[in-house]
Nucleic acid binder design. Structure first.
Lengths: 138, 138
DNA sequence: GTCTTAAATAAGAACGAGTCTTATTTGAAA
DNA sequence: TTTCAAATAAGACTCGTTCTTATTTAAGAC
């Protein structure tokens, strides 16, 4: 994604634009592998070697509050991030730390239908995601 | 669950029975709050103050390999564990670290049906779990 | 363009959940 | 009861993440 588009993403939401935020958002949009913070720091520093580690963690938290980024639920020991905000699901490798997107409108419709007629006592649903665990075969 | 039943769980699977394993399994069966390892260590040490932290982590890994326990995918900074092995789903609080079970046969059937007719290229599914995120209201 | 200031960042120390190491103990088969 | 591979205790260590403090900066006001 071009820099000017990334700037628009921030500006349109009334968020302050900084070179560091642009770099982090660019790194997130440039990959679909749901990177860990450490991986993201690597990517960011290819073009911006001076950006501080703590800054990137702080920016990630800020993006999460702002709704630009979501944490990916996982069983690993490091947090994973996802900047693809449309409703989608994930495939989890049981062998490796690979996590891929799974997107299907029919599935979304089925889930929508199911939860429309069935409310959960004492719980207000805000988001639903399927975790599909298994093995990638090449 | 009684001690003799817990011993049976281990014996029936051909697993070595130790006081430490009994204590950890007992702690897991005594709560449905999907405890972190640290929380579990607290529970275990109420009755067995001498059991080492590393031992409990090692036992948890062993139980996971043995299929007695599953890791719960989460966005938090600590791993959570679940000894309820029937197919079920989870409710996640967006405010707190609360995670509750959600169990419904109709939902399982719907998912079964959906994935029966739709295979995912290059992926062999082994387990499917719904993450329902939202807010608990009292 | 310049000023102003709250907010953002740099640098690295600190924290803590989870892992590793080594000596000791033990479950359970023979 | 003997034997020994496996399990445990104790605590040092790792490293992903957070915190602290001084410095810099984005962007609104003038």
């Amino acid at each position: 994604m071009s820099n000017s588009k990334i700037i628009s993403v921030l500006k349109d939401r009334g968020l302050k634009v900084t070179p560091q935020r642009i770099a982090v958002l660019d790194a997130l949009y440039s990959t679909n592998e749901h990177p860990s913070a450490e991986k993201l720091i690597d990517i960011v520093r290819r073009n911006n070697p001076h950006i501080a580690k703590g800054t990137i963690y702080k920016i990630l938290d800020f993006f999460i509050e702002s709704g630009l980024v979501k944490k990916v639920h996982s069983a690993g020991d490091r947090m994973r991030y996802d900047a693809f905000t449309e409703r989608h699901h994930h495939l989890y490798s049981l062998d490796t730390d690979r996590i891929e997107d799974y997107h299907d409108e029919e599935l979304n419709a089925i889930l929508e239908e199911y939860f429309k007629k069935r409310s959960i006592p004492h719980f207000r649903i805000e988001d639903i995601q399927l975790h599909i665990k298994g093995k990638f075969i090449e």
